[in-house]
Simulated scan of single mutants.
Amino acid sequence: MNTKILYSALFVAALAVGTYFAIGGTSTPGGTGFDLAAQAQTAEEIDTSSIVEMTLGDENAPVKVIEYASFTCPHCASFHQNVFKQLKTNYIDTGKVHFTYREIYFDKPGLWAGMVARCAGPVRYFGISDALYAGQSEWLASRDLTGIHADLRKLAVKSGLDGAQVDACLADAEKAQAMYALFLKNAEADGIDSTPSFVIDGEKHSNMNYEEFTEILDAKLGE
């Protein structure tokens, strides 16, 4: 199945759930906060230029790694709590790897989490991302979209963001559409069909442990 069609179908299904989109706003059962007609547009028709790539490390590092992950994916949380910390210390912080993190949106909470992570800008993005992964089981615990939405807001405020700022971020439907459109473009271009997935110097790889990851990186680095 075409990746774009698959992701679009998943997202439309998520939007169809009866809940609200914006914190603090009124809602109608079945409402989404999105213009569903706009969602039917191809990703190329939506301006994504305002969505910043989230990166770590030296841009001139010899190896480029792109991670595709979802904030609601337990395997992604495990990777970030374990493998990623070691990769950052030994490869990213040492100038060997330039790392790019790209969000995948399988569901509405995943998109909300991405909006929360981006709320304070690139400087704080990875710190808030760490908090989202560390607390994933807690803010997803209610399994109720309204409860998850509220718990994400609490996490953001606990992480030092202003409540009104968080409300504005989560209510920005135009930005959400652009984020989703960019996700579609990138995921389709790199053939992403699971999370976490990695593109290392243009080659796609599935989830790996630290030893498997370092074997690939060291081979590319000639170590």
Score class of each variant (00 low, 15 high):
Val199Ala: 00
Met208Leu: 14
Ala156His: 07
Ser8Lys: 15
Ala189Met: 04
Glu211Gly: 10
Ser142Ala: 13
Cys169Ile: 13
Glu45Ala: 15
Gly127Leu: 07
Lys185His: 01
Gly95Asp: 02
Ala43Leu: 01
Leu56Arg: 12
Asp167Met: 07
Tyr180Ile: 14
Ala13Phe: 11
Asp201Gln: 01
Trp112Pro: 08
Glu53Arg: 12
Pro29Arg: 10
His80Asn: 11
Leu87Ile: 15
Ala181Ser: 15
Leu6Tyr: 12
Leu152Gln: 06
Phe79Asn: 03
Ala120Gln: 15
Gly135Pro: 00
Arg153Ser: 08
Pro196Leu: 00
Ser206Phe: 02
Ile5Arg: 15
Asn60His: 01
Arg153Trp: 02
Ala9Met: 11
His98Ser: 04
Val63His: 05
Arg143Thr: 15
Ala141Ile: 01
Phe126Leu: 07
Ala178Val: 07
Ser50Asp: 06
Ile92Pro: 01
Thr89Asn: 08
Val63Ser: 06
Val199Gly: 00
Glu44Phe: 03
Ser8Cys: 07
Gly191Phe: 04
Pro62Ile: 08
Tyr20Met: 02
Glu44Ile: 01
Tyr91Met: 04
Tyr180Ala: 07
Gly33Lys: 08
Gln177Ala: 10
Ser197Leu: 04
Phe79Pro: 00
Tyr7Val: 04
Phe183Gly: 08
Gln39Ala: 04
Phe34Thr: 10
Gly147Lys: 09
Phe213Thr: 03
His75Gln: 05
Tyr91Leu: 07
Met208Arg: 11
Ala219Leu: 10
Thr32Tyr: 03
Trp139Gly: 02
Ser8Ala: 13
Asp167Ala: 09
Asp193Asn: 15
Gly33Phe: 10
Ser137Trp: 00
Ile148Ala: 00
Val65Ile: 15
Gly114Ile: 03
Arg124Asp: 07
Ile148Thr: 06
Asn207Tyr: 03
Ala61Gln: 14
Asn2Arg: 02
